[in-house]
Structures are given as C-alpha cells and as structure tokens.
C-alpha cells in the first residue's frame, strides 16, 4: 500500500512521518512515538482508554487514522503535566483515589481536563453525563466523578 506523508504536532512537538494510510492514530502514538500512556482497551470505541485531545477536544484515537491529522495538534497524557510535576487533574485523581488498575485512567484524565475546560464548576450530573463514553471496570466511577470535580476546582485556581 502506498505510504502517505503526514505532519502534525504531538504534545507541542512537530512530527512528520510516512505512514501506511490504514495506521490508527493510537498505534502511531504508541508504536512510532513510543507514547504508551494512551491505551487500547476494546478496539471498538466503547471504552475511551485511548482518549487524546485533538485540537483541544477529546477524541478516541482508536477511531482516527493518522493520515487524517494533517496540521492538527494532538495532546496525550504525557503532554498535560507542566514542568513542575502533575497536572491538577492528575493530582486530583491521586487525592481522591480515582484509579485502581490505572488502565482507563489516561483517558479519564483527558476527559476530565476537557470537562473542566468547558464547564465552570461542573456538577456531578454534568460529569456523569460527559463520561458516558469512558469505561472503568475497577472503581464503579464514584471516585472518578469526585476526582474530576476536584480537579476542575484546582484548575480554576
């Protein structure tokens, strides 16, 4: 199959690559860039473990081809923390026990940051509604909701 050249940014860094056009974004991130924080859970876009930010909005990277991203900006879980440690949303997940096995967590954190950026002081109801597309098998979601509410509050400062 003819290879296709594509350029976009990942975590602020310019990436230009020649890829097989069928390459999924999640595989490109994990296999080519070795950004293994973005996970594959279900293969069918149910679970959201692969959630990244695409031009500032959450996207399931198992449902995107790398070649679709010409000129786009991708942020992964590895790109959200500042130089001084964890992002406030990551800290909130630690503080509120928002993770157990940690496999869904990168997707949950990326969703949490997005929810906080779109809702001022998101209510529990809002968080629950927004998280419909992200599955967690460990926590029963209770502490994820609490984590995102607290993370959103920290992000407001």
């Amino acid at each position: 199959m003819a290879q296709v050249s594509v350029s976009f940014t990942v975590n602020g860094r310019e990436v230009t690559a020649t890829v097989d056009p069928r390459t999924l974004l999640v595989h490109f991130l994990r296999e080519e860039l070795k950004l293994t924080g973005t996970h594959v859970g279900c293969d069918t876009s149910q679970c959201g473990a692969c959630t990244v930010h695409l031009d500032g909005r959450p996207a399931k990277s198992c449902a995107l081809l790398a070649v679709q991203l010409e000129g786009c900006a991708i942020t992964t879980i590895e790109g959200v923390a500042g130089a001084d440690g964890m992002h406030p949303m990551q800290s909130a997940f630690k503080e509120h026990h928002g993770l157990q096995c940690g496999f869904c967590t990168p997707g949950m954190v990326m969703m949490g940051i997005d929810i906080a950026s779109r809702h001022d002081a998101p209510s529990e109801e809002t968080i629950r509604s927004e998280l419909e597309g992200n599955l967690c098998r460990c926590t029963g979601y209770h502490n994820i909701v609490r984590s995102i509410a607290a993370g959103a509050q920290s992000m407001r400062g």
Binding site: T36, G37, A81, G102, V109
Partner: peptide, 14 residues
Amino acid sequence: DPRLLVGKGIYTDD
C-alpha cells in the same frame, strides 16, 4: 498512582 497517572506505568503492551 504517580506513574500510572502520567502514562508511565509499564503494562505488557508497553
């Protein structure tokens, strides 16, 4: 938690 939260936990596929 810290390594899991920043995407640096090493699961098998990593």
